[in-house]
Amino acid sequence: MKVAIIAANGGAFDAYKVFNIATAAAAADGEVEIFFTFEGLNLIHKEAYKQLPMPEGTEHFQEGFEKANVPSIPELVEMANDLGVKFVACQMTMDVMGLTKEDFVDGIEVGGAATFLNYAKDADITLTF
């Protein structure tokens, strides 16, 4: 199973959608690559990913997350890394936002649209969040 994911949004809910699917696929021996672009870069930004915003009006779910013992985003990122999920940050968006590879969690790669397309062309599952 080969899975290609585009993460283009930077909220806490977006992060859970991306990393839950990615870790589940990797745990089922899937090959997984996530392409982070635009606000999606927040999901792997060393500082930003610790405090991703909840969508407006849903802040009260925070308690539910804690009660259900849902792992934090940094924990999910580490787990995805352990399971061999590949992270690719979008070079163009990094340039626009003035970010470098050092602003992100360890182990990421940097690439462009063609990098993602080349990976995704024979993927079994392609998802955009």
Binding site: N20, T23, A27, A68, N69, L83
Partner: peptide, 14 residues
């Protein structure tokens, strides 16, 4: 136990 999706699967895999 006490863990949510995707943790049971991740733990099983490991």
């Amino acid at each position: 136990s006490g863990l949510t999706c995707p943790m049971p699967i991740v733990k099983t895999k490991k």
